[in-house]
Design a protein around this nucleic acid. Structure first.
Lengths: 234, 234
DNA sequence: AAAAACTTTCTCGATAATAGAGATAGGGGC
DNA sequence: GCCCCTATCTCTATTATCGAGAAAGTTTTT
């Protein structure tokens, strides 16, 4: 084979083309609203059918994708094992509280953690018995200084220069709120999860449509949930 | 429509070496009890450090793994997004019930589904405030004719010749139980989740140490949880 | 303080793995 | 029957990958 081409314009990070394509294939299957067949997957990756075929078979060998009888592919059960290791103590502590919070508020509750300058949603629970609720799925990420969860996390940390005034306000109130900063039409309320050691493990939040919400009452609920989670984290 | 695969038993599946190694690397990082460094990962995969390096950097580009400051790798937050798509309706319906069941029984509750001739655990909830509980993590898989969850799933399906007598018993009682069939020293009790259409979506189960359990009472709890989940699944 | 031992990251030639086109086989619709 | 669609397989040229090793930097030992 050839030696890797040296191109200063491309990214400096060592890059495995085959693995990269395989991951993009896996992501495409995992995020698709409906199962996709080989042609659709090839088109999305912009690679030849033969390549897609070989890659998808390899994913299948590891149970990461599952082949339906009609030839379409859907996420496989092996994925459940992979994600079990992510932030396990925090997630275990949070899931019961998220469930309770979603039921009490009648809105989608989620757990977000910081990663560098971004905030990533790692778990969400949708409310039971509510006709229309907001689907807010894990994996959504946005800048830490946008949206209620990010503001809550910043508010849980020591004060620093240049922070938005909303952070100071969140620090006083104990919770942060935002309207349409991440997704248009959606509001959220969040409180930081602060460990005994003082560092911020993440934030618990609620999302709902703008109208008709008593922000203060919801804020109190979110603060309580965050306190319960913090107490349960080992 | 499609040409059938040659022979499901023999496994001449088209294989991408690079993707296979990358997946094994990801699994190794995800399943490790503690973060591993490059040398440890290379040893586990039995490949050269340079290869491991290139692969792990590619995984990192996709946020599937995260590089700690000390040079060790842990599961990345991107994994949360991947697994969100797995059996979402069922998982959403099951999580609140699993939480309730684990708390009520004081034991680890989990959700298992069938995949071909195997049963795979896709979600688990550990009981709160219990000193010693069984950690039963998603991803565990075993043959469908072994262990309570598998027996429960078989019992939810139409009777067939050659099935173990335990299946018929489970069908009469409404729940299955087993002792040490999957993991030595552990017992489990499970009930099938049967949809309105009659097909079996999976099984809900409890695991605990052998001693001192009122199987019938626990069976009733598991049956109730399974019914609630079935009612909540869309 | 110097040296040894250990990292992570990068370079580069040989080669085996992949890329990609095309062939083959099977199913469904007409 | 026929046509068109599909997944699966075969094959060769190409090239991305392999893997040894070196460079540069850190920590530990002496």
């Amino acid at each position: 084979m050839a030696r890797p081409r040296k191109d200063p314009t491309t990214e400096p990070s060592p890059h495995s083309q085959t693995l990269d394509r395989g991951i993009r294939l896996l992501v495409a299957i995992a995020e698709a609203a409906t199962p996709l067949d080989l042609n659709q997957l090839s088109a999305r990756l912009d690679v030849h059918r033969s390549i897609t075929y070989r890659l998808v078979r390899t994913l299948e060998d590891h149970s990461l994708v599952h082949l339906l009888a009609d030839g379409r592919y859907q996420p496989g059960l092996g994925l459940a094992a992979l994600s079990a290791g992510v932030r396990r103590p925090l997630q275990s502590a949070a899931m019961p509280e998220l469930t309770r919070l979603a039921a009490a508020a009648g809105a989608t509750a989620f757990l977000a953690v910081r990663q560098a300058d971004e905030v990533v949603t790692v778990a969400s629970v949708e409310p039971p018995h509510v006709a229309a609720h907001v689907a807010y799925r894990p994996g959504i990420r946005h800048r830490v200084d946008r949206g209620a969860p990010g503001l809550a996390i910043l508010a849980g940390e020591p004060k620093r220069a240049g922070e938005r005034p909303e952070v100071g306000r969140a620090r006083r109130l104990g919770f942060a709120s935002s309207r349409g900063e991440v997704l248009p039409g959606l509001s959220s309320v969040a409180a930081p999860i602060v460990r005994g050691s003082g560092d911020v493990a993440g934030a618990v939040a609620l999302v709902f449509l703008h109208e008709s919400q008593d922000i203060d009452a919801i804020g109190a609920m979110v603060i309580q949930a965050a306190a319960n989670i913090a107490a349960a984290v080992i």
